[in-house]
Design a protein around this nucleic acid. Structure first.
Length: 225
DNA sequence: AACTCGACCAACCGCGATAAT
DNA sequence: GATTATCGCGGTTGGTCGAGT
């Protein structure tokens, strides 16, 4: 039905060259973002608009924070993933300077394995049977040991629907929110979504504001059902 | 030195949502 | 209302690099 967006034979694919990057940066500096369809021709690039948009958003944007994820960023990603599932753009939206692609890659390459090593199913954020029996004395994860109130809440939410019927859905990247909404009740959300920035001494995001914003996000999601 | 293997991540692809016609 | 164009998202792929043998 719909034509592929990049079917032109004269468009480049693969890794971007320095010259291409400079052309794209220069063009967006002068004209701003938007109208990705016409941007490549206007900027003198042999790329499709989609490719330009991706390159800009994921790599060239000046406000991107490159480098390793801080521990508080990891914790926030894990908590938000438990709440939202694989909604990477929503998760990335709560991490200043991070892109959905970056968060997704980091989740798949680091955090999934980290949770698995801790005996937690990364798809549904539940402790497996072994850890349910032994975690009290051995669990060393910062996510589940710091700020007990928030963590206990999170685990309570996770365990609210602890039966076998939803096992398949839960192991398919579906969020706690998804599952609870489907079953007709809402989780008691009390996530402490605090993040600090190493480069700034006064950069702790207001917790109440964060909670309000995450509630707004939840409302948006709930309206979709 | 040469090879294999796994981890990482930039980029691509396909699809759904939405706007425009 | 139907069709087309565009944007944005999530899943996947493939190239690169470092560690291990």
């Amino acid at each position: 039905m719909r034509k592929p967006c990049c079917d032109k034979l004269d468009t480049n694919k693969g890794a971007w060259s320095k010259q291409e990057d400079h052309k794209l940066i220069d063009y967006i500096r002068k004209h701003g973002e938007g109208c990705w369809r016409t941007l490549p021709q206007a900027a003198g690039l042999l790329r499709c608009g989609k490719s330009c948009r991706l390159r800009w958003i994921n790599y060239l944007r000046p406000d991107l924070k490159r480098g390793n994820f801080a521990e508080d960023e990891e914790d926030l990603i894990i908590k938000l993933h438990a709440l939202l599932g694989n909604r990477w753009s929503l998760i990335a939206g709560r991490l200043p300077g991070r892109t959905d692609n970056e968060v997704k890659n980091y989740w798949n390459s680091h955090l999934r394995r980290k949770l698995l090593n801790m005996g937690i199913d990364p798809n549904n954020h539940r402790l497996n049977q072994f850890h349910l029996q032994h975690s009290a004395s051995t669990n060393s994860s910062s996510v589940f040991k710091q700020e007990p109130a928030a963590d206990v809440k999170l685990e309570n939410v996770v365990n609210n629907n602890d039966n076998n019927d939803d096992e398949q859905a839960a192991s398919d990247g579906e969020s706690v929110l998804d599952q609870n909404v489907q079953q007709g009740f809402l989780p008691d959300l009390n996530l402490d979504l605090t993040i600090t920035f190493p480069s700034s001494s006064s950069s702790i995001i207001n917790v109440d504001q964060e909670k309000q914003e995450i509630n707004n996000t939840e409302s948006t999601i709930l309206r979709l059902f």
